[in-house]
């Protein structure tokens, strides 16, 4: 057991990406081509793309433009057949399967479109889960707060409160929450242990207009506090003005035109 942990520690250390300063590049894609195993053509062909650290980036694009595929590359679930992807100074294409999983656990907070939470865990346990698979994020939490076993829960509570989730729902089962509340819990989990990269895949598509803006404001506020980089994917162009930078995947992806 101790061997396993120390091994994890070592891995975390080698993969650790120090929180980048504003001038540094957070994400850099170079001549990336990706084709699904049985597909004839590449679905993604991105000659060059980069984003500076601590930016809030809005990625727009109609359905089928390869948003999900891009995200699976950025989260190191899939690797491109050609080109390189550099995340926070690490070339993730060169990592082994296990290292990529560890890299994701350590450095990426991910928010799904909906159903982000494990229905059988309480709200607070869902948030704490982010530290279960990453020693690094757990250490960061412990480094910030009181160094005891409650520190993780205290940090989870702090984040939930910061995201306007009242105390009384924090111990409830996640399945009892409204969709808006669930998405905020998901945001809290994505921010646990201050990962350098937060990726949100249409997190507001199930919310109404007012809640949408409020959610994005809260998310940005907390991402900024953590000096993290935010990538926010959506097909809804009305959200675009809220972000400092926008890219249109349909234009970026050369393959998108042909498809």
């Amino acid at each position: 057991m101790t061997d396993f942990h120390s091994q994890l520690n070592n891995e975390s250390n080698t993969l650790e990406a120090h929180t980048p300063s504003a001038e540094q590049i957070a994400i850099q894609l170079d001549k990336v081509q990706f084709r699904w195993p049985k597909a004839e053509h590449a679905i993604l062909d991105i000659p060059a793309f980069s984003i500076r650290a601590q930016q809030h980036l809005f990625v727009k694009g109609p359905s089928g433009s390869g948003k999900s595929t891009l995200l699976s590359l950025l989260t190191a679930i899939n690797t491109p057949q050609q080109g390189s992807i550099n995340l926070l100074g690490t070339d993730i294409c060169r990592l082994k399967q296990g290292q990529r999983d560890q890299f994701r656990a350590d450095n990426i907070g991910y928010i799904f479109q909906q159903f982000n939470l494990l229905p059988y865990l309480s709200v607070i346990d869902n948030v704490c889960l982010a530290c279960e698979f990453s020693k690094l994020r757990k250490q960061k939490v412990l480094a910030q707060g009181p160094n005891n076993k409650d520190a993780v829960r205290l940090e989870a509570k702090r984040l939930l409160t910061a995201l306007n989730l009242p105390d009384e729902i924090q111990d409830q089962k996640a399945s009892h929450l409204s969709i808006g509340q669930q998405q905020r819990v998901a945001a809290a989990r994505a921010l646990m242990g201050s990962p350098a990269l937060v990726i949100a895949d249409e997190p507001t598509s199930a919310l109404d207009h007012d809640n949408r803006e409020a959610f994005i404001q809260l998310l940005m506020q907390e991402v900024s506090r953590n000096n993290a980089t935010l990538i926010f994917v959506s097909h809804d162009p009305t959200l675009e003005p809220l972000f400092e930078q926008t890219i249109d995947l349909a234009q970026l992806n050369k393959q998108g035109d042909k498809a």
Partner: peptide, 16 residues
């Protein structure tokens, strides 16, 4: 499947 995807997103490896 959803549960598994969430765990994977949190860094759970396939062997987990």
């Amino acid at each position: 499947r959803r549960e598994m995807a969430i765990l994977r997103a949190l860094g759970a490896r396939p062997h987990h």
